[in-house]
């Protein structure tokens, strides 16, 4: 497993190809980019080192993204809950955000990213945070309270099919399935 050199071993590469939606070129590019985030002395151990969250967020693809913290959190498998990422976490992330990932996988992860309090359902608080991410969180750019309430009420009215006050995964996926733009917009390419 632990390829010592700066190159990925062939078996590992083909395994990654089988387990993710990435192509060979994309995996190699990811490997390169990941290596570049590491300090020089650790470059030889790309496969075993975890990169702290602050470093990951310097990637241009994530730097400006308002969901950057959520993305890191969802894809990190760190035992210490510090949102650091290993190379495989990184690949997982790129795989989900790649062109060829299926809408099911994408919507599943989108749901987890939007589920801020991680209780398995989007409630009013999650929706409020989500809308704030979309419009910018600064005081001047936020929606007013009445607008926000109206908006959340509208969303729940539309999407909360079983009328339990929250949007669960299948309801979320139902909305997403009716929006053909989702696959093209839920995408990050290195």
């Amino acid at each position: 497993m632990g390829a010592a050199g700066s190159q990925l071993s062939k078996e590992l590469l083909s395994e990654y190809q089988e387990l993710t939606f990435l192509t060979k070129q994309e995996i190699l590019l990811a490997y390169k980019k990941f290596g570049e985030l590491l300090p020089k002395e650790e470059r030889s151990r790309v496969l075993s080192v975890r990169i702290p969250k602050a470093k990951i967020l310097t990637l241009p693809e994530l730097k400006a993204n308002p969901f950057q913290h959520r993305i890191c959190h969802v894809f990190s498998t760190s035992e210490y809950q510090d949102d650091s990422m290993s190379f495989e976490d990184f690949l997982d992330m790129l795989s989900v955000f790649s062109d060829s990932a299926t809408p099911e996988v994408k919507s599943h992860y989108a749901f987890r990213i939007f589920d801020f309090d991680e209780d398995g359902a989007l409630d009013t608080h999650d929706l409020e945070k989500l809308v704030n991410c979309l419009t910018g969180e600064a005081e001047g750019t936020k929606l007013s309270e009445s607008e926000m309430n109206q908006l959340i009420q509208n969303i729940l009215e539309e999407s909360d099919i079983d009328k339990d006050g929250t949007i669960n995964l299948s309801e979320f996926q139902h909305v997403i399935s009716r929006s053909p733009d989702f696959v093209s917009s839920f995408k990050i390419v290195l």
Partner: peptide, 11 residues
Amino acid sequence: VFVGWDFCISE
């Protein structure tokens, strides 16, 4: 709200 964000945007 759910599909509005374009994750491709990086600038």
